[in-house]
Design a protein around this nucleic acid. Structure first.
Length: 301
DNA sequence: CCCCAGGTAGCCA
DNA sequence: TGGCTACATGGG
């Protein structure tokens, strides 16, 4: 294991890894995190705002490169935040979640994670992702006090596992979707890497050919896996936020809502979406109700 | 017992 | 297009 410090700015490790965009990092205290990135094991914590302490099986130079890319540290978060609208909710969310960044995850890992996410709570998504990793992923020997780690299973490993053994990980009806999607990718009918050079629309169309991938999960993979920051996943929380706060009392069609989102939240709308999601999701419901009442978008304001 | 969870697919008008 | 509903499983 190698150790080194990585300088960071405008970055909060705990907020980022506990947000609803990624599910395969483990922690016991919310400060120390460990998991696999590709074939390498990483142990991370942030003793000060200005740097991460890293222990890894990767070489320091590769580790720095991988982590900088993964956490998007080459992008200016300030510039992104400046592009957000300045309403009270957005201001509160960006203040409460300072240092939350969108990750550049592996498309396959993202696709699998979000196929498993449908009508599941975030804690359970984490458990299921953990489960398929240690059952079907390749074990990674580490000679430290850390618990053993497993690489995220690749398509061939999930195909070989088969639908019934996937189902045994308590993923329910999602087992069929996951198995069939793994087959499509393992056979080469869908090439996730080739989507990196596609437009958002082209990539979306291909992703939605995967069983179990509809509009919402496709947006998640586009946003978290391919870095399209204008991709905008509309889950139950975001729908609630739009209906109650931004478009109260309006019976808008899906297309109208999408038009509002693109126009109002701008070129990093997906990034803004993540702040709103994590903020409102963790707000006591009375506080949220009060926010809704005070919405500047409400009638008579 | 109820309701809900970062939805999707299939069916119907 | 828009509106059902089944689909597994766990938690509050």
């Amino acid at each position: 294991m190698e150790s080194f410090d990585l300088r960071v700015r405008d970055f909060n490790l705990g907020l980022t890894l506990s947000s609803g965009q990624v599910f395969h990092w483990a922690t016991s205290d919310g400060c120390h995190w460990h998991g696999m990135l590709g074939k390498h094991f990483y142990h991370l914590h942030q003793p000060k705002a200005s740097f991460l302490r890293v222990h890894t099986t990767a070489s320091p130079s590769l580790g720095r490169q991988d982590l900088s890319h993964y956490f998007g540290l080459d992008q200016s978060l300030q510039r992104i935040l400046k592009s957000f609208p300045k309403d009270p909710l957005m201001r509160e969310a960006t203040h409460a979640y300072k240092g939350l960044r969108l990750l550049r995850q592996d498309p396959w890992v993202t696709l699998v994670s979000f196929i498993l996410s449908s009508t599941k709570q975030i804690l359970q998504i984490r458990q299921t992702v953990q489960e398929i990793s240690c059952r079907f992923g390749s074990p990674h020997a580490i000679q430290t006090h850390h618990s053993p780690a497993w690489a995220f299973p690749d398509p061939a490993q999930l195909v070989q596992a088969g639908e019934s053994r996937l189902r045994a990980c308590r993923m329910g009806y999602r087992a069929k979707y996951l198995y069939q999607t793994a087959c499509l990718i393992q056979e080469g009918q869908i090439q996730l890497d080739s989507l990196r050079t596609c437009s958002l629309e082209e990539a979306r169309e291909v992703l939605m050919q995967c069983p179990g991938v509809g509009p919402k999960i496709a947006e998640c993979v586009l946003l978290f896996g391919y870095g399209f920051q204008e991709a905008f996943p509309m889950d139950v929380w975001i729908r609630r936020i739009l209906e109650d706060y931004y478009l109260p009392g309006q019976k808008s069609s899906v297309a109208q809502v999408q038009a509002f989102v693109a126009d109002y939240f701008g070129p990093h709308s997906g990034y803004a979406q993540q702040y709103l999601f994590d903020h409102v999701r963790n707000l006591p419901s009375e506080v949220w109700q009060a926010m809704v009442k005070a919405s500047p978008f409400a009638q008579g304001s």
